[in-house]
Amino acid sequence: MIADPRSIGRDARAAVVTTIAFVTAVALLPPGSYLALILAWLLLAFAGALLGIGPGHLARRGLVALPFVVAAVPIVFLRSDELLWAGTIGPLSLQVSGAGLRIALTALMKAWISVQASVLLLALASPPSIVTALRRMRLPAVIATSAGLTIRYLEILRDEARRMLRARTARSASPVGDGRERIGGTISWRARTTGSLVGSLFLRAYSRAQRVEDAAASRGATGSLSIGTMPAADSRLTLKVFGVLLLVLIITLSGALLPRL
C-alpha cells in the first residue's frame, strides 16, 4: 500500500488522471466486450510489469471486488431474453438468460480490472501525493486537509482499535466447564459493549486531535493546517494527457471494433 519513497513529493496528477480515464474507458465498454476487456487488462498488466508488479499479484489483488457480484446474480435468472437454459431444480423453475449472464460477467470483469488500476495508482503515487494532486485539481482545502490528516492518523487509530479488540477478546471467556468459544451476555449488552469501545476510541481520537491542534498552534499555525509545499508541477503534463487520451481511444476503439460475445 505504501509507495516507493521516491514517488513522495512528485506531482501525481498524471497518475490520477490516467487512472480515472482508464477506469472510465473500461466502464464505457458495452456488455460482452470480453476481448476489449482482455486487451485493457493486458495494457494494465504491462504497466504493472514496468512498475515491477507481476500480473499474478495484480490479478489476485483484483479479486477484492468479486463478492459484490451477488448484486448482479438476479439478472442472470430473471431476464428472459436469449435463454441459454430453462428447467426445474426441485421445486424451482429456473431460466438462465444469455443477456443477463453477459451483463453480470462484464460487470465482474470491469470491477476486477478497475481495482487493479487503483492498485497501480498506489504503486505510482503515495497517498499524500494523491491528496496533493487532488488539491491541485481544485479539491477544496477543507476536504484536502481533512483527508490528509485522516490518512496520517489512520494506521495509528486502527492500531488502537486493534489493541482494544484484542484486550476484549482476551477477556471473552466461556462459562466454567465449557471449552469452546462462545459469546456471552445478551445482545443488547454486547451492543452496549461495542458502543462503549466506539465511544472510548472517539474520546482517544478527540484528545489526540486536541494535542495535534496544540502542537500545530505552538508552531504558529492558525485554524487550518497548510498542505505543505507542493511538489514542482509536472512539466510534461500536457504530453502525458495526450498519452492518456490515446489510451482511452485504444480501449474505446477496441470496444467498438473487436467482436463481442
Binding site: 490528516l149 485522516t150 487509530l157 472517539f202 481520537a205 486531535a209 491542534e213 500545530a216 485554524g223
Partner: peptide
Amino acid sequence: SQPILMGVLGAFIFA
C-alpha cells in the same frame, strides 16, 4: 479547530 478535528475523526470512523 475544525479541519484537524475532522481529519482525526475521519481516521476514527475508519477505525
